[in-house]
Design a protein around this nucleic acid. Structure first.
Lengths: 261, 261
DNA sequence: GTACAAATTAACCCGTTGGATAATTACTGT
DNA sequence: ACAGTAATTATCCAACGGGTTAATTTGTAC
């Protein structure tokens, strides 16, 4: 079938750009490789992620995962395991990924208000870039986190954000930027909540409000609102932006107040 | 089977408390009725709500709904329709219910800060009292709100909250209680978000943070935090409560406007 | 009480689905 | 060249799941 074509087109180990005539044969062999366990596994995991995040656990179809991965169904069991194993692997991968990116964000070097803004910005954009993550979390919560619970791997991956926030808040209070000490966990949850809910529920909310919440403008407005809300609460200074349709650059067209027709 | 027992125990039309001897016969007949379309339909819908909210669309089992409703499977199709119809009916019921309760909340008579606090309190407690609603919304968003979109019924049910908030914010700004005018839609979403995310994701979050977020204390703390966060942002005054583990009234069990046990 | 409609049940149908078996193919070390 | 192992495929199947058919029971009208 076309399985072969797919296999050829998706090369996991990219051949080195500068290729001497000597290893041309070898390279050709690599491209033609029928067996590629690593690549296969990755493709399976990616396909499974798509499937589970698009349809939930109950709605996911093992056959579809195989098809999307360009693999025989048997391969799923060979490389990963049954449906449940497949799901757990996807979930673990999702947590690994976000934790990795979180770690790269250092808020320590920023002034407290900027650090908070950065944090919100990161969270927001991470969710936008990884919509499957949102869906997976919802899916996992539907089953009361039973898979997360049995994953020692995930349980050992602590988010660095709580400590980061604790530090930032402490510094902010000390410097006078912030007026009050907030519980870092609560603040972390709140910041995640503001982005998560908006994006995860954008479909129903868009219908209810009769406008596309994922449109460029709407997204920008939302980010602005969230930053303003949190910073206003922390600093006590109303960061201008916080006002209704107000933006300090009045030249721009922008629809001021007529939301919800 | 025990279907009969269930049918007898769950009476939908409650008999009037004062019952004359005259209609005793009639009443007895009612109680013995094998046929009870209304009651049956309600039980089916309730069972379907449980099933869909517990397992999602793909994970829901029609047989299980029938069983839970104490009905024959054929009855589902007879009274409501196929699985899809069943789901839509549940979704519509859920929206009807929250809209109805929302309408009863009048914020117009309260001072702006109290109105906001009341609003947060209501939202929070409604979600706690109706966990299926959260699950249903997530489920519906998983399918990109496709069912919501085709429900003219739901689309015609506008939440009164946006206008309520608009009014409250306007009054707040006028009275000087609030410093800035916020977009009511954004504020509405934010308030919903703070509660929704916490509760909807409490399972995974509890694992990640290693503590039960649904425990009494944790819930109280969360409500406190949310109110403080939003009010601080709006008023500019840091409502003390906002501080870490601080509660200024150590004696009182807290819960200012708790109209929900 | 008898005819008629409404409500309810039992049993079955048949495509789907997760999973398993066994055979086949591609690569590896020697 | 060859044996042995790893990867992959084709095929099958038993259970399940949504939905339907046809009969049966129960109440109602006359």
């Amino acid at each position: 079938m076309h399985a072969f074509a797919i296999r050829e087109s998706r090369v996991t180990r990219q051949p080195s750009p500068i290729t001497g005539r000597a290893d041309l044969a070898k390279r050709k062999r690599v491209l033609r490789w029928q067996r590629d366990p690593e690549g296969m596994r990755l493709r399976i995991l990616e396909a499974a992620k798509q499937e589970f995040s698009a349809h939930g656990i109950g709605g996911a179809r093992v056959d579809r995962i195989a098809q999307k991965a360009g693999a025989n169904k048997r391969m799923l069991y060979y490389h990963v395991g049954n449906k449940e194993d497949l799901y757990l692997a996807v979930l673990e991968g999702a947590y690994e990924k976000i934790r990795a990116e979180e770690r790269e964000l250092d808020l320590e070097h920023l002034a407290p208000p900027e650090a908070i803004e950065r944090l919100i910005d990161f969270t927001w954009n991470y969710f936008i870039r990884n919509p499957e993550f949102l869906a997976l979390l919802n899916t996992e919560n539907l089953v009361k986190a039973k898979n997360l619970k049995r994953s020692t791997k995930i349980k050992s991956m602590h988010s660095p954000f709580v400590e980061m926030i604790r530090d930032v808040v402490q510094r902010g209070v000390a410097s006078g930027d912030f007026r009050v000490a907030v519980d870092p966990v609560q603040l972390y949850i709140s910041i995640a909540a503001l982005s998560f809910f908006y994006l995860s529920n954008s479909a129903t909310l868009s219908v209810v409000f009769g406008r596309d919440l994922l449109a460029r403008e709407a997204r920008d407005e939302r980010l602005q609102h969230m930053v303003a809300l949190v910073l206003a609460a922390l600093t006590g200074k109303s960061t201008a932006l916080f006002a209704k349709g107000v933006k300090e650059k009045p030249a721009k067209p922008r629809s001021p107040a007529h939301h919800t027709a």
